[in-house]
Design a protein around this nucleic acid. Structure first.
Lengths: 198, 198
DNA sequence: CCCCGAAATTAACATTTGTTAATGTCATTT
DNA sequence: AAATGACATTAACAAATGTTAATTTCGGGG
C-alpha cells in the first residue's frame, strides 16, 4: 500500500476532524489500480461498489442510449473522486460505463470494505460525508449550468473552469457532456473564434 | 416537538442501522415550520444552514440570472429533503432562493445543530449519509436526463415520474427546470397532444 | 512513405428553440 | 359586471440545433 498517495493524504489531512493516525486502517483497505487508455473500469451491469481517487489520467462516465449513441455524464481527472453511483447509492447494477480516456492511476477502495472500516473507526465517518458532498456540489453545479446557460455559455464556462482538461479530451465527449452533438459544438467553436478575432 | 412527523419517522426507521430510541436527541433538535404559498424560505445571500423534510406542499429552488430571469433548479414536494446547498456543502451564502409554491409544512433542523447531535450520537451518522445520497441520486438523475433526453423527452419523463407534481405547478417553472422557455414548453405540449390524438 | 481510421469540420436541409408581441383564459378583485 | 393581473397559448421571425453526408485533418500502423 506504500504507493504514491501524497495528494490523497494531503487532501484528507485538510479534514481536521480526522487525525493522520486514524487513517491507517483506511489506507490498509485501499489498493492502487492502473488502467490503460481506452480500458473500461466499470461495465454496464457491473455490481461492484467501487470508490476511487484519481491520481492521474481522465475517466469518462457515460450511458448508452436507446439508439446506441453514448451520452457522457461527466469527466473526472486528477484530484477527483469517482464512484459507481448506481451500485453505491442505489444498490443496483450500474447503468453507466466508466472508461479511461488516458492512462490512469488511482487509489481504489471497495465501498463495502470502506463501510466496514467506518463501522470500526467511527471517527472516519466525516470522510464519507466529505466525498458525498464533493460529488453533490459538482452535480448541482452541472444542473445549474443546464438551466441557466446556453450550450455556448456552458462551453465557455467549461473552458474557463477546466480548460486544461478540455484540451486533453476529444471534442465529441465534451459535446455530449454539454448536451449537444459534436457537429453543434464545432459550430459553437467556430462562432466563438469568429467573434473573438473581430 | 410532538408534531406530525409520522412520515419522517417511518422513513428513518427503514434505516435499520439506527434504532428508534437513538433518534430522540435528533427529534429534540427539530422544529416544525409552516410557510404560506409564495413565502420565501431561504433568500439569496442567506447564510443559515437549513435542512428540512417536506411533509406537505412544494418548494422551488431557483437562481436569478444576469438578465433578471429566474431559473428553476428543482422542485421538492412531500417526502423529500430540501437543503440550502451553498451554505451546507460549500459553507458560503446561498446563491439560490427557496420559495414555497403552496402552503408548506416541514420539519426543520439547523445543520450546525444536526452536526452537534451527530458528534454526540455517532450512531446517527448514517442519517447524514442517507440524505446526502438521496440528494446526490436525484441530482445525477437530472444530469442524466439533460445529456440523454431532448426537452420533449424530459417533459414526458417528468410527467411519468412526477405527474402529480407537474399538475400542481405553473408551467413556467416546469419549463425552466427542463431548460427551455415557457413558450417552448407550450409548443412541446401541443406537439404531444396532436400526436396523441392521431 | 503511404494508407487507414478516427475525429473534426463543413455543407445542406429539416426541426426545434429563442424572442417578441399579441391574444386568449381564468381567477380574483373592485 | 367590469377590470385587473398572471399565466398559457399562438403567431411570426430569427437563431440555434439536429441530421445526414461529404470533406478535411491528423496521427498511427503497415
Amino acid at each position: 500500500m506504500a504507493v504514491s498517495m501524497e495528494t490523497l493524504q494531503n487532501l484528507l489531512q485538510q479534514l481536521n476532524t480526522v487525525s493522520p493516525s486514524d487513517m491507517a486502517p483506511l489506507f490498509a483497505a485501499t489498493r492502487q489500480v492502473k488502467l490503460d487508455a481506452g480500458e473500461t473500469y466499470i461495465r454496464e451491469g457491473d455490481s461492484a461498489r467501487k470508490l476511487a481517487y484519481l491520481e492521474k489520467g481522465i475517466i469518462r462516465a457515460y450511458a448508452v442510449m436507446n439508439n446506441g449513441d453514448e451520452a457522457t455524464l461527466f469527466l473526472r481527472c486528477e484530484g477527483q473522486f469517482i464512484a459507481s453511483h448506481d451500485t453505491i447509492i442505489r444498490q443496483r447494477p450500474s447503468r453507466f460505463i466508466y472508461r479511461a480516456l488516458e492512462d490512469v492511476i488511482m487509489v481504489e477502495i471497495d465501498y463495502d470494505q470502506l463501510e466496514a472500516v467506518l463501522r470500526e473507526n467511527p471517527r472516519l465517518e466525516p470522510l464519507r460525508s466529505y466525498f458525498l458532498q464533493l460529488m453533490l456540489a459538482e452535480a448541482l453545479d452541472s444542473i445549474e449550468a443546464f438551466v441557466t446557460l446556453s450550450p455556448e455559455e456552458r462551453y465557455l464556462q467549461l473552458l474557463e473552469s477546466r480548460g486544461d482538461m478540455v484540451n486533453r479530451v476529444p471534442d465529441k465527449y465534451i459535446a455530449s457532456m454539454l448536451g449537444v452533438t459534436p457537429v453543434s459544438l464545432s459550430r459553437i467553436r467556430k462562432r466563438i473564434h469568429s467573434r473573438g478575432k473581430q
